[in-house]
């Protein structure tokens, strides 16, 4: 393992663990943005530049900001003051540790996962664009339809209907 991988792994795990563990919800989302940025840098390290920049644009730029807005719009002293229940916390952590133990055992015992890095494959934006426009054009169109439907649906669901009823 290289030093850069270790630094990025520690950054990502610290950011995501803080996002799931901190008490204040706004702090959680800011720590989450750090974790998402760490994952984006891991993509860059793996040679997937386009996916790394997409990750920064979509997750750090859009999803984290959207979550901050949602938390601020639903801010309520009553819900912030309540601590998470202790027994549910212990049970959830036991389940998560058990899942990690099973996954880690499967990964370590597998012979396929021990191989070292092959030479860097070329994945330029031009190649990705060509693939999107030829081989993957149908999924791309369906994705555009899905995003349009999700955009309209999100606006309709979040709209305040009490004003129209008057």
């Amino acid at each position: 393992m290289t030093t850069s991988f270790m630094i990025l792994a520690v950054l990502t795990v610290a950011g995501t663990a803080a996002a799931m563990g901190l008490r204040n919800a706004v702090h959680c989302v800011l720590a989450l943005a750090l974790g998402f940025a760490g994952i984006a840098m891991l993509y860059l390290q793996l040679g997937a530049q386009f996916v790394g920049f997409t990750q920064i644009l979509v997750y750090v730029g859009a999803v984290a900001i959207l979550a901050v807005f949602a938390i601020m719009m639903t801010h309520n002293d009553k819900s912030m003051a309540l601590p998470d229940s202790h027994s549910a916390w212990v049970a959830g952590c036991i389940v998560a540790v058990a899942v990690f133990a099973v996954l880690a055992r499967a990964i370590v015992s597998s012979s396929a996962s021990a191989q070292t890095q092959p030479p860097q494959p070329a994945a330029t934006v031009q190649q990705i664009g060509n693939a999107l426009m030829h081989r993957f054009v149908m999924p791309l169109e369906i994705m555009g339809l899905l995003l349009t439907a999700a955009l309209i649906g999100a606006v309709v669901i979040a709209m305040d209907r009490r004003e129209e009823m008057k």
């Binding site: 795990v13 799931m20 793996l46």
Partner: peptide
Amino acid sequence: MNSLQSYLLLSSLLFSIGLAGALTRR
């Protein structure tokens, strides 16, 4: 050199952290 194993272990750790958060937060 990084092996595939280190990335897979990191991603399963991230999955477990997300699972713990989804199960425990209110």
